[in-house]
């Protein structure tokens, strides 16, 4: 029996008495590439934080590779949404990615860690800029560095919050190329509010707006989307070259 990467049963969570996630049920298989789409404020980031073990649900169960999320941290890589940190921070590309290999209090980074950083930077084609200070990177380069930081632990589950937000259109192609290489090694889940950004590379799609409305292979999801957005599907599947949903 293979373990599911993520298994969520009857998950609910509240902030200040307001229900953010309501009775969520879904699972992600190993090496699945899943996109969760939904409007802003629909609870996407909250759901990711529950999977990461940063938030504890009020109700329901969350398992990551059969474990409590807090005990599965070694298995997960994370690309946060916000990139509003101090760009002048005294740190270079290499040191930024190295943090992804953190082992624990008072434990040094080993040679192996250094090699892993170089490899991760090669994966995102940023190894030549490893000594550059982060303020001297473009938005797209910065995003690659953070992807490298997320994959440098060789995670089995890669979690990405709005990865397309700071990637320019020309970079989208190379981003999905990277994802298709990575998905042979790990399960990937990304959230996005922009349906057009989700490409045919995704295996499964789900819609989240407080409730998780649909979960399944990409092609059949048209009706689910309509239900969440309450608007005709053509309006939101505007990314014609990367069309997600078949015409209907």
């Amino acid at each position: 029996m293979t373990l599911k990467a993520v298994e969520i049963n009857h998950l609910s969570i509240k902030f200040n008495e307001q229900l953010i996630l309501n009775d969520i049920n879904f699972s992600i298989e190993e090496k699945d590439f899943m996109a969760i789409i939904g409007p802003n404020g629909g609870g996407k980031t909250t759901l990711l934080k529950v999977i990461l073990g940063l938030l504890t649900p009020d109700e329901g169960k969350v398992k990551v590779f059969g474990k409590d999320p807090k005990k599965a941290k070694d298995l997960m890589g994370y690309l946060p949404q916000r990139l509003d940190f101090d760009h002048d921070f005294p740190i270079n590309v290499f040191e930024t990615v190295l943090m992804g290999r953190y082992h624990g209090l008072l434990k040094k980074y080993s040679n192996q860690d250094h090699k892993a950083v170089i490899q991760a930077l090669k994966d995102v084609e940023m190894d030549e800029l490893k000594d550059r200070q982060i303020s001297k990177l473009s938005g797209g380069q910065m995003q690659r560095v953070f992807i490298a930081r997320a994959i440098v632990r060789d995670p089995k589950l890669l979690i990405m919050d709005e990865p397309m937000a700071s990637i320019d259109p020309e970079m989208q192609h190379s981003f999905y190329e990277l994802m298709s290489r990575l998905k042979n090694k790990m399960a990937i889940v990304l959230v996005s509010h922009d349906v057009g950004a989700v490409s045919t590379h995704v295996d499964k799609i789900a819609c989240l707006n407080q409730k998780l409305y649909y979960h399944g292979p990409v092609e059949d999801s048209a009706e689910g989307l309509e239900e969440v957005y309450h608007c005709p599907i053509e309006l939101i599947s505007h990314g014609i070259p990367h069309r997600v949903l078949k015409e209907h």
């Binding site: 990461l52 940063l54 941290k73 070694d74 997960m76 994370y78 946060p80 940190f85 921070f89 740190i91 040191e95 930024t96 943090m99 992804g100 290999r101 953190y102 624990g104 209090l105 008072l106 980074y109 930081r149 632990r153």
Partner: peptide, 22 residues
């Protein structure tokens, strides 16, 4: 000297520090 790695990580990105088990 002892906690330089931790201080750097937390100064730069607290949330990510939590994700890597710090």
């Amino acid at each position: 000297f002892l906690f330089r790695r931790e201080f750097l990580a937390v100064s730069f990105d607290e949330e990510f520090s939590n994700v890597v088990g710090l």
